[in-house]
Amino acid sequence: MSTFYFIAFLSIFFSILVISAKNPVHSILYLILTFFTFTVHYILLNAQFLAIVNFIVYMGAILVLFLYTLMLINLNKESEPVKPFMIKIAGVFGGGILAVAIASSLKLLAKSNPVVLQNPNLGLVKNLGKVLFNEFLLPFEVSSVLLLSAMVGAVLLATKDPKTA
């Protein structure tokens, strides 16, 4: 039980560091750590498939993509211009209001039951694969079309226009 609270503390700590780090590269490295704590959360929930997918897709693919983009865009020249202090205060205040609103709405709930794993092989690949390929076969195929179109779109957007260049 205390494992959850320790990992939750680490998640919040690293995600605060993500948005407060001055250097974007440091932000990305903290984001990797945050996603690693999420992977640990998934393992604690016995969602093994999601833990592995989170590890490979998020930490492996997406964050490497971020790092490559950051390296393509040379940010060493000048650092990010700072927003006015009042706007920062207003942003933190707005986000804090959102957190307080959600947290206080939890008070309306009755006593919350603990999260208990009824079926130990709920998040295993075998079980999830059966659900995915029986009930969600059409969305699965559509998502492949989505990924293909995203790939084509990314290539189209990122290549230089030969007429203007």
């Binding site: 948005i19 959102l98 947290a103 603990p114």
Partner: peptide
Amino acid sequence: TIHAVPLNHYILLSAIIFSIGVM
């Protein structure tokens, strides 16, 4: 190890991280 964690604490954790993202 997870057996005793209430559902509310998961909601709270997600709400806090979501708010940090908004900030």
